[in-house]
């Protein structure tokens, strides 16, 4: 399978949007402009985009605390996302969800999730909907290495398997659940775990967009063909802390810099497509500049956006309710 030039441009554009989005948030958070806490996806772009390139609006994904990248990869509007993260009325969720609950069901984005392991059961539900209504859709659960140890995750592997659901579990193993190393917290390994549930599974280099894209293609095609769930163990690194403000004292010296230098996802992508002459570096530079400008524009909108008011406090609790 080959990616067209248009697809490659789209993939790079998404990855650049995510990187700029997260880098901007890092700065804004440091400046004290963002309420609450945010968990940034910078460094992990190849995973979300590599998977979501195979999806359309009939497909659903459930995300994690670290959900901005999945949102953008699935087609959510970065401007509305930025407004949301700033707690503004015109945010994607009216300012009621924030970074940890950012969602757009119309795009099949079932939400970042404040509960570690909250997403996999929901993905079983989206997959059940697709199967029951015969939409041809699939559902993807992104889980971190932390959530990979939750009971909900294992229960969902099992349910997806016994119901033969069109689901894919993407374990994004960035090597640290909060400050605890997955090398310590995960018993056995992710691929063997999946095989224990009878699911096809493979390990993927999460810095390599093309590796993720190909592995996801196989898993998603299996799901669409009614052949049941699969698991991808995507190994990658995050550039920032668990949350912003995390001093990252638990990582080794030079650990992040080494990844950035040797296997940054955007860098690897750029090398690959220019070496193979699929895209030239000038047009990639244009994409980079455009992404940077677009996010700057989103940021300006978010800062200027109006705050929700008291009238918004009690709306959207129910569809219909007599308080």
């Amino acid at each position: 399978m080959q990616l067209s030039r248009d697809q490659l441009r789209a993939a790079y554009q998404r990855m650049c949007l995510i990187r700029n989005f997260e880098d901007s948030l890092h700065e804004e958070f440091s400046a004290g402009n963002i309420p609450g806490f945010v968990h940034l996806y910078a460094g992990e772009e190849a995973s979300g985009v590599g998977v979501c390139m195979h999806l359309d609006d009939r497909d659903a994904i459930a995300s994690t605390h670290r959900g901005h990248g999945h949102c953008i990869a699935k087609g959510c509007d970065p401007r509305a996302m930025m407004l949301e993260i700033f707690g503004k009325k015109d945010g994607l969720c009216g300012g009621k969800g924030g970074s940890m609950h950012i969602a757009d069901l119309s795009k099949g984005m079932m939400g970042a999730n404040g509960i570690v392991g909250g997403g996999p059961p929901l993905v079983c539900g989206a997959a059940l909907t697709a199967k029951t209504l015969k939409t041809g859709g699939v559902a993807i659960a992104f889980v971190g290495d932390g959530a990979s140890n939750q009971g909900t995750t294992f229960e969902s592997y099992n349910l997806a398997k016994v119901w033969n659901l069109p689901a894919v579990f993407v374990v994004e193993d960035n090597r640290y659940a909060e400050s605890t190393a997955s090398a310590w917290s995960v018993g056995g390994n992710q691929v063997d775990r999946a095989k224990g549930f009878g699911m096809p599974a493979q390990e993927v280099d999460g810095h390599d967009f093309f590796a993720v894209w190909e592995a996801a293609r196989q898993a998603i095609e299996r799901a669409r063909a009614g052949e049941g769930p699969s698991l991808l163990h995507v190994k990658l690194n995050r550039y920032y802390g668990h949350f912003e403000g995390d001093a990252i004292t638990y990582k080794g010296e030079g650990e992040i810099e080494q990844v950035k230098t040797e296997k940054d996802a955007l860098m690897l992508f750029k090398q690959r497509v220019t070496e193979t002459k699929l895209l030239d570096s000038e047009e990639l530079t244009v994409i980079e500049e455009e992404a940077k400008a677009a996010i700057a524009d989103c940021l300006a909108s978010a800062k200027a956006g109006a705050l929700p008011t008291e009238a918004d406090l009690m709306t959207d609790v129910y569809v219909d309710y007599k308080f």
Partner: peptide, 9 residues
């Protein structure tokens, strides 16, 4: 949770 996800979709 599956019921919740199915309901939302």
């Amino acid at each position: 949770g599956c019921a919740a996800g199915a309901a939302a979709t």
